[in-house]
């Protein structure tokens, strides 16, 4: 019953009918994504109890990025949407990455100088 409604809705989306201007995400996909997100949350929490040294941050960010991708693709419809919307989002993330990367490069570059100053201040 549910499936047939979904089918009808996606078929509607194909013709230019007024009522459906966008793809309807199948209910099973939504529940699967939710399940995956919860599992990934459990993984991040579990992983935080192990010490990977400098990789701690990267593991946490990696899992968060996978979760972000899932949310963006399915909950936010990017997978079914006009690709231009995905492009806008990806460009936004890329510029954020550029912003963070250049700032961090600068910060790391000055770190020895700061340490020298702190040692001197003591």
């Amino acid at each position: 019953m549910m499936e047939s409604t979904v089918q009808a809705a996606s078929e509607n989306a194909l013709d230019d009918s007024v009522s459906s201007v966008a793809h309807v995400v199948p209910i099973r996909v939504l529940y699967s994504v939710f399940f995956a997100l919860m599992v990934l949350t459990a993984i991040t929490v579990a992983v935080s109890y192990f010490d990977f040294g400098v990789f701690n941050l990267w593991v946490a960010l990696g899992v968060a990025s996978i979760k972000t991708t899932l949310v963006a693709l399915y909950f936010m419809h990017l997978r079914y949407d006009h690709p231009f919307h995905a492009l806008i989002f990806v460009i936004g993330i890329a510029f954020l990455g550029l912003f963070l990367a250049i700032t961090m490069l600068d910060t790391v570059h000055y770190q020895p100088e700061i340490q020298r100053w702190q040692e001197h201040a003591r």
């Binding site: 949350t41 946490a60 909950f75």
Partner: peptide, 23 residues
């Protein structure tokens, strides 16, 4: 509104490990 709400969720997905899961 859904898109907005998902974005709020996305930001929390990053905030949670960055603030609560530092060891």
């Amino acid at each position: 509104v859904g898109l907005y709400w998902h974005l709020v969720d996305l930001i929390w997905i990053f905030l949670f490990p960055l603030l609560y899961l530092i060891h």
